[in-house]
Design a protein around this nucleic acid. Sequence first.
DNA 1: TTTAGCACTCTAAACCCAAGAGTGCTAATC
DNA 2: GATTAGCACTCTTGGGTTTAGAGTGCTAAA
Lengths: 377, 377
Amino acid sequence: MSLDERKKNILKAVVDDYISTAEPVGSKSLVSKYHFNVSPATVRNEMAALEEQGYLEQPHTSSGRVPSDKGYRAYVDSLLKVDDLTQAECDNIRKIMKGSIDELSGLIRQASIALSDKTGYASLALSPKLSQSHLKQIKILMIEPGRALVVVVLSAGVVKDRLVRVPNILDASQLVQIASALEEGLSGMTLDDITLVTVATAARHAQLPDNLLNQVMYEAYVSIKQADNLELYADGAQNLLSYPEFQDVHKAKDYLDILARDGLIAGYLSEMKDESEAGQDMPELDEQVIREAQERKPLSYVVRIGQEIMMEELKDCSFITTTYKMGDIVAGRIGVIGPRRMAYGKVISNISFVKQTLNEQIRRLASSEDRMEATRQ
Amino acid sequence: MSLDERKKNILKAVVDDYISTAEPVGSKSLVSKYHFNVSPATVRNEMAALEEQGYLEQPHTSSGRVPSDKGYRAYVDSLLKVDDLTQAECDNIRKIMKGSIDELSGLIRQASIALSDKTGYASLALSPKLSQSHLKQIKILMIEPGRALVVVVLSAGVVKDRLVRVPNILDASQLVQIASALEEGLSGMTLDDITLVTVATAARHAQLPDNLLNQVMYEAYVSIKQADNLELYADGAQNLLSYPEFQDVHKAKDYLDILARDGLIAGYLSEMKDESEAGQDMPELDEQVIREAQERKPLSYVVRIGQEIMMEELKDCSFITTTYKMGDIVAGRIGVIGPRRMAYGKVISNISFVKQTLNEQIRRLASSEDRMEATRQ
DNA sequence: TTTAGCACTCTAAACCCAAGAGTGCTAATC
DNA sequence: GATTAGCACTCTTGGGTTTAGAGTGCTAAA
């Protein structure tokens, strides 16, 4: 089950052609467009063999061939040559992403916009997972009697806040007292490790009657936990309606409906294994293809093709994602979703550059933070 | 150019029928479905007259009739009977909107979701316009050297905040000093009245060297101004793809593209005149129709039909919006956008109830606030 | 192993046709 | 004078047929 050089060339040509035309590709047009030095009949035989091995499919008996999931997989893993972006393209992306320089969610938002803009497909971006960040500060600011603002500062330099109700009789200084007790007892812990019990224990040092403490303590707990809520940014979902695979409105609607379910997509993204998986899960690929894939520099992105996405409504789509970092830990994911016959090379080079730019910006955002951390250790 | 009783009945029947079937309606099917006591021929004559007067249109010479913008307009203004929601429907909406009780943007978000859910169309909701609210408090919280959180509290009980950079050498107490100077100088002013000059004047009382002050002062100014940023929430845009008028994918894409332009839509919504306009702008409507419209209880919603929306891409849509209040002032808008042949009655009753529920929730949210205001005056 | 040749398949577009729903008009009727 | 039955006419829609064209698989020769 191995692919010789000619089969590879043919497979690549078929995928390239189908990506650009969306029409099943036949042997004759293939030789004329890509000037192979063989006759259509030979190509025909090779294509029949590729179909036999599962790389190509025939929509109906007497039509040209179309790549299968497996065909795209081989294309992406070993046939595709990813070019770097031109200087102009890089500058353009940097320009789009230059906007809100002071806020993390703004950066992520812009990364998503840049991706959908530059690729012409749909983009997704997930806010960072903060469950492993540790709490650095917690402040409670009196807004008016009965209402307060809980501000949670995390190690990654992220600040979250939330408006809460507190007992009317508490005054500002009591709130400050509670906040310092909580900060004292909780700072340094990761969000995951903070529980209602640890919060309660910390709060007890505030030396206030339980009945006053309880409500504030609970609200603080919720505020802390809520700091880890995942947010999903999506842009350009409607872009895919331009492509022939979505000419059927019902299909388009199913697809849009799925993408509108933020929670579902956020969950899917957040549960993806990280990039090391690329190249695995494909026992049927021949050894040479795998070896070649491994010889390249390690992939920094994950590609899911068609059925690999495991969602019926997206079976005609492909999905390319990568991660971004905060400090040294993988924080969140950005990605592009497009038709299965998407321009993989273009998307990969764009997503790689956006990832890189986003990482830089996050580093800069947290730079004062980093300096502090460095001096402390 | 007046409509007698029979013409009205026929017009209403045509609109009702077209709304439910999306098929041009003919004289014969009309008499059989709505048992008029006249023959199809008579109805035919009346329909010809209605077409003559511009209430109906014929897609092609030998087909049934379809309502024109003017036809829908007359239907909405004087023929439509809006029923209240059933108890169950009310309960259901309340349930959807019960979620985030502590935060304004959450309430608005949920109102939008409730609307698209209940109507099956697309919904829009605009965050409140706060330019007439006055500033009550401004706090600056030190996060770490060089970074601070500016918290702005407005009269309406709204709290906004923003992370900013400040000179590294400023310590927490200096920031507090600046904040109190600003609060002293600015509280009670409306957002609209606050300018860079007023902020600078206020800041000068902080008794700190100008070079330190300037950056903080500027960031505070931006934070205050930014509190008035309009946010748009939209849900269910893809719902419209279910309807036959959007079977053409290109049309669907144009429509989705427009809705994806948040800024455009937010601008459009925020510039709408308030509800008093309903019933105007229709010089061609006969006097009786107008008189009847005026006899009803004043409309609390605005309907824009087809071309009235003034956006080419939405010419096959209609738009129903209403406002919600914070305290006594009109604050923002919520609305539903659907096909021109939308179920106007159903949408109006739903939007009215959502408006009412939202107003109640906002009142409750600000209740502690209100109490304070009341005692002060 | 490659390829020319050929019969075969299948789609998509073009075309025609008939059915059906609806219209407008006229003349008869209430 | 308003209503309606009757009728000829229009236009869309759906089904069926036909044809051109692109592509295939197979065989036999190079």
